[in-house]
Amino acid sequence: MLHIADLRFLTALSSAPSLAAAARSLNVTPPAVSQRLAQIEARLHLRLVERGHGPLRLTAEGAFLIERSGTILGEIETLTEEMTTRAGRIEGPLHVIAPFGFGRLRLAPILSRFAGDNPELRPTLSLSEDPLGAMRAGPWDVLIHVGRLPDLRIVQRKLAANRRFLVAAPAYAARSGLPQSPVDIAAHRVAVVREDRADTTLWPLTGPDGTETSLRVHPVYACNDGEVIRGWALDGNGIVERSEWSVSEDLRAGRLIHVLPDWSLPDADIVALLNPRAVRAVRVDAFVDGLAAEISRNCR
């Protein structure tokens, strides 16, 4: 007879390159792993793992058992999630994916407070500028994205509106002046973020009369981290395009000023994507609700 603990043990064993590696992951000795495996095989009257040198290999029976174990363990986890949801408890794992800058500066403190208020929660925050890749890389519950995404046919919730601005430091404006029209930017120093596969050197601008233009800029500075770009702007190194959440406090304090304030860039709203394959647990909904409230209050 097999027990749930046996299925978890065999699943961990199957993902390890060797019995010794499995022992390390299970925090037991290699003889203990070998002994438990032998006991399970004896009960089933089947050999599940090929002994010998080299990487650990499953027999056909072992591979079949691992495949079925994945289904059974997944159903047990789902059932546990559903019962936790019925009880209204905020506990268990919460996997969140977010962009580097926004995740580090805005999301991480919110997640920390949420976990502090719910001590049975086990949060994981993964920072990535490749949301599609991050979604494929491992388990996730909520993905936070700033800006437009392709049609993923995934439930999205808008957390906050987020405008984009062209900004520069007063020191740069005093030294180099400011452009009066989009074409004037060609004579200025520009910094851009190079992230994802987006063409960040093409700035689509809309004028006060609705005139649209696509401005191709030739950056002097470039980085794949938006907060580095913001820092360069604060140092007076040139004109940058940044999200409202990133520079709102700098604009209020006068550390940065608007460039071409009558022209606008497309909005880059802050949205939460919910994993359609994950159980909509209470913890997910509670976190997203709290996140929306805090972002709307603090990111403007």
Rank of each mutant, 00 (worst) to 15 (best):
I144W: 02
G70A: 08
P139E: 15
S128D: 15
A281N: 07
L132D: 01
P99H: 03
S126A: 14
P179H: 14
L234D: 02
R175M: 05
L291T: 08
W232Q: 03
V155Y: 15
L125H: 07
W245C: 01
W232E: 00
G177Y: 12
A293F: 05
T201Y: 05
S243L: 07
A278M: 15
L152I: 07
A187P: 02
N27H: 15
V183A: 11
P17V: 08
E120Y: 14
N298I: 07
V288H: 07
V33L: 03
L291M: 04
V240T: 05
L7T: 07
I90N: 03
A272T: 00
R68M: 04
W232I: 06
A42D: 04
T59G: 04
P261R: 04
P109N: 10
H218R: 12
V49M: 11
G231V: 07
S128Q: 10
L251Y: 02
G70D: 01
S25E: 12
L19E: 04
L7S: 02
I257N: 08
S69H: 00
R148F: 10
G177W: 14
D117G: 13
L260A: 04
I72K: 06
W263H: 02
V284N: 04
G226Y: 06
L10N: 01
R280M: 10
F102K: 00
N118M: 07
S112K: 15
L152T: 09
